[in-house]
Design a protein around this nucleic acid. Sequence first.
DNA 1: CGTCACATGTAAGCTGTTACATGATTAG
DNA 2: CTAATCATGTAACAGCTTACATGTGACG
Lengths: 175, 175
Amino acid sequence: MSLRIAALGLLAEGSASGYDLLKQFEKSMANVWPATQSQLYSELNKLAVGGLIEVCAVGPRGRKEYRITDAGRAELQRWVADRQDDPPVRSAGLLRVFLLGLVPPEQARAHLHAMAEEADGEVRRLTELRESLTGGRAVDPADESFFGFAVLDYGLRLNAMQAEWARSVIDRLDD
Amino acid sequence: MSLRIAALGLLAEGSASGYDLLKQFEKSMANVWPATQSQLYSELNKLAVGGLIEVCAVGPRGRKEYRITDAGRAELQRWVADRQDDPPVRSAGLLRVFLLGLVPPEQARAHLHAMAEEADGEVRRLTELRESLTGGRAVDPADESFFGFAVLDYGLRLNAMQAEWARSVIDRLDD
DNA sequence: CGTCACATGTAAGCTGTTACATGATTAG
DNA sequence: CTAATCATGTAACAGCTTACATGTGACG
């Protein structure tokens, strides 16, 4: 259900073609809900059939620009409010940690170290991304992208936490 | 690929039937990689066909007890070491935050508040779980479940972070 | 004229969920 | 004897990935 919502959400902030949305998915939404080209296009067709979006313009290369309908907006708000049908979160990374007892201790240590470094890298990447988007200024709560930045902050905190955690596990391993 | 690994991982710590594994999934592994009954049974059959596990005993009600094979152990170690083919992480919860600009501000605040409370609840639940499993004592790195506890700690830190984050977003919203 | 970006679509296959279906054993 | 637990399986459907397939327009 969620890709449908993600697409609807992007269209709620302005009309766009599948191609446009695809790039937005690669950029801002990839961290929250990645989608492939194939999936996005077929989802757009389903949404159009269901009347949640509609083609509002046809451009050069068969380009179809979509616009959200009132029914689409209603569906979106219903979903944002409800928070029932969320699929469970799965993390292959944590599964791997769970099984780390199966490899030699030094390999386990190396793995945790790599996780910490990777998280550090993500913190740097997201910090730079934030910089480049805001230019260092604070984001106004009235700003349209306020919650986008809130999610970005979540990512920053998550990765900082992960780095700290990985190092704490290594420390306990070193007793 | 990952359910296959999760099942192999549990079998690596001792033989068990599908039914046994199912309960272990509901208990310890649900937070990392949930699985349904249906999926688990068919995965076990596939693993058996592939020679990664084998039936080592047949009990009362058609109960089949599985044991991991050498090939299974090899596959498991390969996967733990590799960390290439990880599926991307998706979070419906964060997607919802991303779209929170679409609902009235007070509803957004209420939602974030609910997220914080929920995270607090998880922290309590996991703290109690940890208590009940360790009896308050520290976990020895040599202990078989050391990494299980490491993952539990991750969950604790994650939820603590989430509660803090949600409250920080509310604060910024209140400007 | 060639290459790159634009632009959309289809098909096969795997993973995961829900629901249905069946039967054996044990405990009260 | 009857209800709960044990124990496994199948079928239909939705979501996602990979790969393939096709064609247009702009720029140099």
